[in-house]
Amino acid sequence: MTTVTGARHGVAFWLQLGFTLLVCMLLVAPMLLSLLAGVTENYLVGIESGLTTRWIAEVLRGYSDTILLSLQVALACLAATLVLGVPVAYVLARRGNWLTRLFEELLTMPIAVPGLATALALIITYGGVGEFRRSWLFILVGHVLFTLPFMVRSVLAVMSAVDLRTLEEGAASLGAGFARRFFTIVLPNSLPGILSGSLMVVTLSIGEFNLTWLLHTPLTKTLPVGLADSYASLRIEIGSAYTLIFFVMVIPLLLLLQALARFGQPPR
């Protein structure tokens, strides 16, 4: 068997396979080690010191509010980007002129500009509004600014591909007014884009650190900010346990959204 396979795949194949596995190792190994550290009794001694869940318990005791806040911000951010982004993408898809193209470019600015700069701009502008500055909504605004272009882009890509104009004309010829066309034709046919946009927005929001680090207050810490906190000031086992919790949270979410995105695409 081996000789047959070996004959079928040349040296180049095995070299490529080896290289691919090596790259995977380099990527996965640190994650695995970090996860392992989160359940190790004493990282300096190593795995022989035994496995424990007490670091996880400690993180949950100290940082569960950051986890909840991160989820809250991510979901609110998703809602906001859906409500803002889908109509924006629709207008951009239906009306292609210099103004909409300019708007599209402007919209992507927060991706190009470093998060810290965006955050600073927000603080300079709204920092004086005390109630707002202190609330989690301040972080939400930053996240929406940052993630909106991803939502708009992915919805726009799908909308541009399905010839919305003609579909809508078809619906209109059958008597459908704007609202009905939007909800029965535009939205369902943009679903793959909306789902993949949602996937990106939630993931980006949960993991966002740059902006959030400047925007947060001691009372509005998100998970990544808490993570940085624990890395900086606590035992490495606690930081690692924190990472573990992040993975447990975010991976099912990613898988779910991936599955949804696949479901939304027409079968080929």
Binding site: V162, E169, G170, G175, L191, P266
Partner: peptide, 30 residues
């Protein structure tokens, strides 16, 4: 949408999110 015309488009403009019966029934649903 208020002229009550029937229109057949060059690209047909059938709704990919609906099956044949739903496409045909769309105008009645509206």
């Amino acid at each position: 949408e208020r002229r009550n015309v029937g229109m057949v488009f060059q690209s047909y403009a059938l709704f990919p999110n609906m099956d044949v019966a739903q496409n045909v029934g769309y105008g009645l649903r509206v």
